[in-house]
Design a protein around this nucleic acid. Structure first.
Lengths: 206, 206, 206, 206
DNA sequence: TATGAATGAGTATTCATTCAT
DNA sequence: CATGAATGAATACTCATTCAT
């Protein structure tokens, strides 16, 4: 019984991995379900024993991974003290999760945005939790006096997400190595930390 | 003759506007050419007198608008002096261009990413010119001593683009008004300017 | 314009004729839409310019023909006087309509009964009008004193329809010629006329 | 062993009963084998231990029941003398067999006619025996001088079958109670008996 | 006998594109 | 330039059947 469950989960995972690979290469709409099946080494019909339909595969990829990311963020951030350290950790966790998985990065940054309907309906919950986690870090920094209070935590969270997404996108589109991605991430982390820090900025009226 | 050309251009523009509207509502792959035609008030076949195929419509939307954006950036940035002013202007131009055109913003931030093939092949040139323009502003700031030299101009450009894209995305997905988008943009501009400015940051080893 | 309309109607009729032929040979569920198209000499997609879907083709065959039958029945019955003559005419019209069209007869008697849902939803109206027409003839015969009053006109109508349907079914399943069908029809007409006529029967209590 | 055989037969019967129920509700082609299995409380694969394939289930329903009907007809008719009594008994046996089993009636009158191939190949033998039994009654009536000789016994048999089938069809499609079906059957029996009886009819030239 | 996970052949329908008018 | 009827390639999904357990 336990073995059967394991085998079933294995097969599901194999299908997901294959889908990530093919989606990354061809894009969601240009991917044939039969090609995912072939790549996973199962029959076409088997796909439908584990997923409701083709859309469900893409949705599962996203919710699985964003869930992992959010869990990891919460777990590690709880162990840190300063807001600056936390921001730096957010960057390293997110980029670290994608570094070794260019295919996944491609699916997340590119293929996921297939339709606003899809984004609004399925991606929103996980995305919101993600923005909440980051926003809370900014807010804590403001309350502890580390960060300037004249910035919307939510806006900063969106911007940080977008900045990392932008780095990932150009990494995926280009051919630079993943070390460069990490270094760029560190620089962006510094920009945000310094840009948010209490100091000269507060003297500059917007 | 001139009038006919004008009429032709008018019709082309009407088709583009209709496509933006429908793409924004349904997404690229769920949009029927016949629906664009109906919205534009022309026959299905007429579309193909102005565009090679359905892909060409999306490509035209992007290249038209990114070209306009790039031209506008170059024109206005040439009139300014300080790097900080230029960064601020980049933000206001880009968000200003999308503020009144939520449909267009939706197409640009969401529907454009239909396939990596598409992005790599068609979007890359305009996107690269855009990143070059921003990157040059950062570089100038570093050369003039305004900005820290320990940041890759390219990475900063990607991050700034991504941050603005992230703001736009959440604006499009949510229901907040466009004023809030502008205010968030100003805050992000300040974060980047302060984050890049020479100061305490350079003392902080990464 | 008139010519175009004519051409369109022609094509629709050609598709219907082809469908009758293929349905008769293979049955509804074993008929491929592509085979109807090939037989009609049109492209697969063209079918869907004239019919909503495969079901709609079968429905159209039935409603077209039962409508013709009902119209013809009402037209001719109005010219006759006695109930017996009318019953005889009903038989000759119905069988006459199918005699030369074995394929159509096959579709009507066999393939039409694909699902109770189909029968109840689409066939019922035309079928009811048909039963009403026959039932009214029986009733008139009773009111004029030609037919016994102790028979439900509706039941007699159902039975007459069924009897003719039974003859048609065995004709279609077997290989007998159509003259034999007509002769059998005449005999059945006589059975019903005599069986309904006022006479010894009324003395026989059921 | 005997018990096992019994249990096997029980299971087979349970599958048949479930199939009748589901076929009646959904029609043959819209019925999933898995639904029959679920209704019968067995696994999908178990069906194939008792039936060759899905077609075989429908065929078995028909041959089982028509066999029962034919056996019952022969048994009871042997106990009767007059042709009229026999005709009346035919009607009451056939309708009596279906009265309490609307689902079965639905399958027999509607779902059975799925394809001419099916009807010709499998239904024909049992159907022919049925027509022979009835035809022989008519013929005996003619030989004994009860019935007119100018009617083909086979045609009369087809017509009687069809008439009863027509009554059953309208009963199944409509919502009238089964008593009404029986009364209609009695009236139809009288029509046929009187219509076939030697008398005034022979004076009417066809 | 019984199971039910896995198979993979099979098809109605859509829709971008063409071209005769 | 403009039309829109006709085309036909292309594919997600179903479900009868099998077979290892």
């Amino acid at each position: 019984m336990a073995q059967e469950k394991t085998r079933g989960a294995e097969k599901r995972e194999r299908i997901l991995q294959s889908a990530i690979k093919v989606f990354a290469r061809k894009g969601f709409y240009n991917t044939r379900v039969s090609e995912i099946a072939r790549t996973a080494g199962v029959a076409d019909g088997t796909i439908y024993l584990y997923f409701k339909n083709k859309d469900d595969i893409l949705i599962s990829i996203f919710t699985d991974r964003i869930g992992t990311l959010n869990d990891e963020l919460e777990r590690q951030l709880a162990t840190l003290q300063g807001a600056s350290e936390k921001v730096q950790r957010i960057v390293s966790i997110q980029l670290g999760l994608l570094r070794g998985h260019k295919d996944l990065a491609e699916v997340i940054t590119i293929n996921l945005r297939q339709s606003n309907r899809f984004l609004k309906q399925y991606a929103a919950p996980g995305f919101n939790r993600y923005l909440d986690i980051i926003g809370k870090v900014i807010q804590e920094g403001q309350e502890s006096g580390d960060f300037r209070p004249d910035v919307s935590p939510r806006a900063a969270a969106c911007a940080l997400f977008g900045a990392l997404d932008g780095l990932t996108l150009t990494w995926v589109l280009g051919s630079s190595d993943s070390d460069r991605l990490s270094r760029a991430g560190q620089q962006v982390a510094k920009i945000f930390i310094e840009g948010l820090r209490i100091g000269a900025a507060s003297e500059t009226p917007s």
